[in-house]
Amino acid sequence: MSYSKLKINVIKALFNSQYANMLEYRVEIALWALSGVLPFIMLSIWKESGAATSYGFDGLSLSRYFLSAFLVRQFSVVWVVFSFEEDALLGKLSPYLIQPLHPLWRYLAAHIAEQVTRLPFALLITFTFFLFNTDSFWIPSLIQFLLAWLSTLFAFSIAFLLQSIIASLCFWNEKASSLERLLFTPYLFLSGLLAPISSFPPNIQKIVLLTPFPYMINFPANILSGLAENIFIGFIIQIIWISILFPVVILLWKAGVRNYTAMGA
């Protein structure tokens, strides 16, 4: 069997099994999708406070931005550190470590399967949003949609790699997920979930744009809602972050595996 066919078979088998597994948890996934409505809460706060206009937003672009932020979040949400920590603590990781496949592929497949399971729920919430905000309805152009999809994929990759770095720390500290909380706070404030980055003071914006967080929500949401400027630069920065984080994950993993004690197994 050729190497590429072998890889395709692995991807297919992993996705099929993980999708079947996620369907078993469809109600839980629907609730997770529903719990991601923070951008809509922020939209109503912005609208009610009347602050939007003072930051140069009209009601329509703000609605579209927060709906886009909701969708980007739905398809870039990552939970690898929690699964990994549980598997490492309960010894479930051990059989994966002695198979000729990097265990992170399993977690990646589980995330993709979860996103596919989540898709109908996210679409249903979007439909409901438009039902109550008919004037916000818009259909992005094909190019706009494809670029938004690609930047969301990159946003997911950045989030997955960032969490994988923390997950790798489980090899040293069994409760590495608590470190994820430290990451969540800057993510929440600097990603664009609570407010578009363009509403930040210019000096703060400059600093924020040096971190990976705006490229995890704000950038893809801007493309989808038609607010994006400097799309090319945005993609370059996303690729730079992926290129920085990927080797860090590999190196940390290699060092961590040497420290693994196969607890609970």
């Binding site: 072998l6 088998a13 992993l14 099929n16 099994s17 198979q99 000729p100 496949l101």
Partner: peptide, 9 residues
């Protein structure tokens, strides 16, 4: 399902 994954791996 798990066996199919193992077979592919």
């Amino acid at each position: 399902d798990s066996l199919q994954v193992n077979a592919a791996i």
